[in-house]
Design a protein around this nucleic acid. Structure first.
Lengths: 188, 188
DNA sequence: TCACGAAGTCAACGCCTGTTGGCATAGGCT
DNA sequence: AGCCTATGCCAACAGGCGTTGACTTCGTGA
C-alpha cells in the first residue's frame, strides 16, 4: 500500500500511543507497532529515528493548568480536580507517561519536571512559604496520580466505575484542603 | 566460594528484591541479580526454577490490616494512614509490586486481589451498602497508592522529604473522610 | 517517455535475554 | 581414606529486540 508520508507518520503515532499505553515502554515493540499499521519496522525507524524518539513524539502534551488564583478561592480544589480528570480522559499521553515512568528513571525525572514547572508554580502563587507550597503541591499530585493509577493502570473496579462528576466530588475537597487549608500538624 | 543452600537462596532473594524494586520486573535481569550475589545465573534457576517464580518468592507479604472497627471511630483515618506508611517503609515487597504492576497485567490483577480481599472487607464492616463501601475503599486505595507512587517510584522531592508523622497528618483526615464521612454528591 | 525521488520491503547484524545440560569440586559421612 | 552428594561454574541454545543498508516499486514532473 502507498500513502503520503504525513499519513503514515500519523498512523504510526496512533498505533504507538495505543501500544505504549497498553504495554508500557519496554514491552511495546517497534515490530508490534509497525505490524498494527501494516508496514515494515524499518519505516518507523525512517520516520522517527529510534524507539526513544518515537516515544517522545507520542507523549508530547501540555498540562495547561488554569490560573487557580483567578477562580473563587473556595472552589479551587474542584476546579483543579475537574481539570485533571478531563486531562486524563482526553488524551492517552499522561497515561502512557504514568505507566512507563514506573520503570524508567528518565521518565520519572520527566514527571518531576512536569510537577516542578507546571503544578508547583501555580500552587506557589497561593502560599507565601515556598517549602510549604512544595509540600502542598506534592500532596495534591499524590492524590491526582493515585486516582489515575487506580483508574487507568491498576483498573480497580470501583474506581473505574465512577464517572467524571463523582471523582471530582470525591477528590475536590481533598485538593481544596491540600492546597489552601490549615497545614498538617504532627499527630500521634 | 561455597555456602549452604539456605544462605545462597536468601542472598539471591535479597538481591532480587533490590533489583526488582529498583528496575521493575522487566529490566531486572537474572544475570544482574546473580552478579550481585557473585554466583552464576544458573544457580538462580536451580533454586527458583524461573524468573517468574523468583519474583513471586521475592514479593510474598501480608497487609495484616488492623481491625478498624475496634479503634475509635473518629481516629480511623489516622490509624489506617499510620499502618500503611509503616507497611511501605518496612518492606520492599509492596514497592516492588507497585512498580512492576504498572506494566504487567498479571501483577495489576494481583493488586486487585489484595484490594478486594484485604482492604475492601475491612471497609465493608463500616458501611452497610456494599457498592458504597467499594467506592470508599477505592478512593482510600487511590490516596494511599498515590502517596506511595510519588514517594517511592516517581520520587517527587517534597513527598520524599516528608517524614512518617507528616504524611500521616496529611492523609489521615482524607482517609477519614473517604471511609466514614458524608458520601460525595455530584457538584458542577 | 523516462528518469528521479519518495515510499516501502527484505534480510541480516549484533546484542541481550531466560533457560538448559554437562562438567568440576569441595566437604561431610561411613 | 574414599566416596557421593550438594554446590557451583561454563558454554551454549533459541528467541526476541532495536537498528541498518541495500534493494524494489510506485507516482510524478520535466
Amino acid at each position: 500500500m502507498r500513502r503520503s508520508a504525513a499519513e503514515t507518520k500519523e498512523s504510526i503515532l496512533r498505533a504507538a500511543r495505543e501500544r505504549f499505553a497498553l504495554d508500557g515502554y519496554d514491552r511495546a515493540t517497534i515490530r508490534a507497532i509497525a505490524g498494527e499499521v501494516g508496514i515494515d519496522p524499518a519505516m518507523v525507524m525512517r520516520y522517527f529515528g529510534s524507539k526513544e524518539r518515537l516515544f517522545a513524539a507520542a507523549t508530547e502534551y501540555d498540562l495547561s493548568l488554569p490560573d487557580l488564583v483567578a477562580g473563587p478561592a473556595d472552589r479551587l480544589g474542584f476546579v483543579l480536580a475537574a481539570h485533571f480528570v478531563d486531562l486524563w480522559e482526553g488524551s492517552e499521553a499522561l497515561q502512557i507517561l504514568l505507566r512507563s515512568s514506573a520503570t524508567d528513571a528518565g521518565l520519572a525525572e520527566r514527571m518531576n519536571d512536569i510537577f516542578a514547572t507546571q503544578l508547583l508554580p501555580v500552587v506557589a502563587d497561593l502560599t507565601p512559604d515556598p517549602d510549604e507550597a512544595a509540600r502542598r503541591a506534592g500532596m495534591a499530585a499524590a492524590q491526582v496520580f493515585g486516582v489515575a493509577l487506580c483508574r487507568y493502570v491498576l483498573r480497580l473496579p470501583p474506581v473505574v466505575a465512577m464517572d467524571r462528576e463523582e471523582i471530582v466530588a470525591w477528590i475536590g475537597p481533598t485538593l481544596q484542603r491540600y492546597l489552601s487549608e490549615g497545614a498538617a500538624v504532627t499527630t500521634t
